[in-house]
Amino acid sequence: MLTEEQQALKPNNPKMTARDVNVFYGAKQAINKVSIDVDMDNVTAFIGPSGCGKSTFLRTLNRMNDTVASARVEGEITLDGENIYAPSMDVVQLRARVGMVFQKPNPFPKSIYENIAYGPRIHGLASAKADMDVIVEKSLRRAGLWEEVKDRLNESGTALSGGQQQRLCIGRAIAVEPEVILMDEPCSALDPIATAKIEELIHELRGRYAIVIVTHNMQQAARVSQRTAFFHLGTLVEYGVTSDIFTNPKADRTRDYITGRYG
């Protein structure tokens, strides 16, 4: 495995690209001309003050904005070179390939096993019960939850602690073998110990999945990511190697934010 330093300096291997993306909610523009590449081998962090559009932009990457009636997206976003807003793109497939983990853990009110099995089942990824068992175990292991729950897979997912619930949600996303995982402030509802576990997990998952994490916590961005994008008022102010952004920001707005002038 590469060291943190080496990882940071590896050349970009873009998994998703966005070009001149505008997002509108009704008449209000939420994202203005954002262009960015999401790297396959690196964890990308979106930072910025609240209301800057980082979560909105994240949701355009798997078209979750489609569920908001008034939302409209302009520009081009590609996954492996394919425009995800093209009519030929199937949103069901897209979301299976680009998984998402939400701010607040949202396990379904079903058993732990059924939570993990939900995605493979709707997408028909396992035909036999034995196959499903393998997927569930593999996903829970990757989510670092297997040892804690292997004896109580039939208990409700909502009975777990907050941190465990969030790891269950990560496992649920992993179970459909996505290529990209989007995380929308995954630790904001968790305590420091649970947060540390999730951060460790992100570290483990890097390289296997392209990971984008939205966070308002700059220390977290510095800890888990190799690429950082700074959003402000719906625009992308600066994007680059994380260590550069934090030690030597090019834009004044980035510096002011990082040094705590506003936020």
Binding site: Q93, K138, R142, A143, W146, E177, E200, E204, R208
Partner: peptide
């Protein structure tokens, strides 16, 4: 956190054939 490292060490990822 000991279990994940062992599973991840053996990459068994088989991408889903969506097409």
């Amino acid at each position: 956190m000991n279990a994940p490292s062992t599973t991840l060490a053996s990459p068994t990822r088989n991408p889903t054939d969506w097409k």
